[in-house]
């Protein structure tokens, strides 16, 4: 795991490639700008509009204006189901106790409004040795292990 910096401090990133530094543009702008590689998805947007453009995207920033709005968990997972392999960054009201679920939905970097320390993140992710269901990560569900 690497860390990145923003003006609020560092945040966890779970990718080896270089971070994308071009700004994430709105979905509307992105569709109009053929050279844009970073796009921001608000909770109400239809992430499937990105499907025709997945080849050129390097970063999808998914917004969490309030932590209780869970729509973008689906957005992240849908992107991975469609084969997107670039970065998915959760931005906004992202709390320590949510990052394990976000990781499972395919989020691989975080830009929380309140910084999350790397050790705290490691610890939060470490609570869950097993998972009950397949999702967008590579983890093997318990049922598969039972019948391995």
């Amino acid at each position: 795991m690497a860390e990145q910096q923003n003006n609020k401090g560092s945040w966890p990133r779970y990718r080896d490639d270089a971070p994308v530094n071009s700004p994430a543009v709105t979905l509307e702008a992105f569709v109009e700008q053929p050279d844009a590689v970073a796009v921001r998805i608000e909770p109400g947007a239809d992430v499937r509009e990105l499907i025709p453009h997945l080849g050129r995207i390097k970063l999808v920033e998914i917004g969490f204006p309030v932590f209780g709005d869970g729509r973008n968990y689906s957005a992240a997972r849908i992107l991975r189901e469609e084969g997107y392999q670039g970065e998915i960054r959760a931005e906004g009201d992202v709390l320590l106790d949510q990052i394990a679920f976000m990781r499972r939905c395919g989020v691989d970097s975080f830009a929380p409004a309140e910084p999350i320390a790397a050790e705290a993140a490691e610890r939060a992710l470490g609570f869950w040795p097993e998972v009950y269901q397949p999702a967008a990560d590579a983890r093997t569900p318990i049922w598969a292990k039972r019948h391995g």
Partner: peptide
Amino acid sequence: RQWSSFHPEFSYLP
């Protein structure tokens, strides 16, 4: 029950 326990996508439903 097992499927829905700690479901990563459906823990912050409306």
